[in-house]
Simulated assay, not measured.
Amino acid sequence: MMGSSAGGIVTYNTGFRRPEIFGSIAVMSPFFVKTEFDTEGQLQEYPFYQRYGTHPNLRIWLDMGGAEGVFMEKYARVEAERLIHDGFVPGEDLMLFLDPGAGHSQRDWAGRAQAPLLYFFGHIGEPASIQLHGDSVVGINGPLKQLNPVITYTSGFVQTLMNGTFHVEDPDVLRVWPDGSITPRALGSTRMFLQYGGLTADKEMRVVDEMPEFVKVTVQVKVPPSTPPYPSIYAGFELPYCGEGLYRGSAMIPHGLTFAFKVSRGFGLHEKIGTSGLNRRSFTASSEMDLFYEVEDWDV
């Protein structure tokens, strides 16, 4: 069974409740946590699923895109760690993939659907390449940063390595743990390496004194004159109507969080973007930003 978003939660629950029927489940971009911005623009998180704490005879594919905004990679990481605690073994009955740059859309899920199908029914082949994704700057004071080592195989299969052996040239500057999390130790720069299946990847890292936990992002959207005055629309997060075809809102976004989106009036009611090759908008909350978008037309 395979499902994405809320369908990922349905798939997760179905697999754990009836593993004698569904022996393999692909949980894609699951809606594990409900997120809301409060009146002060602070992000609040609420668990939105049931955990079973069991280890049935079940193979699990779990993924999340790196540009899904408030859905966040960290929820998939946390659940993968909990499944390991329950007895699942990475690379055997559990696969995790954090898809760099992927948003929360059918297009993105279709782009990686071959991976769980190869895992369940095919042959994944041999490791062909490693890429280390993640921020190259970390703060001694600031949010936890974690690397995402993506292994691509000869078959086209992909996965995020959950337990790697990292080597750091100058361990006095920072340490990288097997799950990719980084502990900064002193100001400076160093290079780190990961070896897997005869392949090597490296990344230059810099440690600074402080990185912000959250940054303020303000978004304003102008819509066509024919647009009905909806109370709010969405451009990464909810924007209230402020008159004369304009919507504007601000939120405190976790540092480094990336949003890939189309401006939306609600479920399935997205803006129409031209044929210039751009099929969605995106931003990364790396610093305080004031963004302006204009919707040319709505997709009908």
Rank of each mutant, 00 (worst) to 15 (best):
E73G: 06
G156F: 04
R191F: 01
D63K: 06
F31Q: 13
V89S: 01
F237P: 00
A115D: 13
I84R: 11
L98C: 07
N13S: 11
E36K: 14
A67C: 11
F214Y: 09
I9A: 11
E36L: 12
T11F: 07
P171W: 08
F214K: 00
S282C: 13
I182L: 01
N13D: 14
P56K: 14
G243A: 06
T154I: 06
G249L: 00
D108L: 05
E213V: 10
V217L: 05
G66P: 07
N57L: 10
I273S: 05
P127Q: 09
Q195H: 05
L83F: 06
K216A: 01
G134E: 04
P149Y: 00
L147M: 00
V208P: 08
D99A: 14
T258C: 02
E294I: 05
V207S: 09
P184L: 07
R107F: 08
F120M: 12
D38L: 07
V207R: 09
I9L: 15
V27I: 15
Q106V: 13
V78A: 14
K272G: 08
A113H: 08
D135F: 10
G268K: 13
F283W: 11
Y241R: 06
S189W: 05
G101R: 15
S250N: 03
M211K: 09
M162A: 04
K262G: 03
Y196L: 04
L257V: 05
G69Q: 10
M205V: 06
N163S: 08
G266W: 01
A6R: 13
H270W: 07
R17T: 15
H270C: 02
K34Y: 15
I84L: 03
G111K: 08
T39H: 13
I21V: 15
T11A: 15
E126V: 09
V208A: 05
E81G: 14
G180H: 01
V10A: 14
R206F: 09
I60D: 00
V70F: 09
G41D: 06
Y119N: 09
L94W: 01
T183P: 02
Y75N: 15
F166P: 01
V221D: 10
T154S: 15
K222A: 12
Y12R: 01
W109N: 08
Q42F: 11
H167F: 00
K272I: 02
P178Y: 00
P254Q: 02
I273C: 07
E288K: 09
G3H: 08
F259E: 01
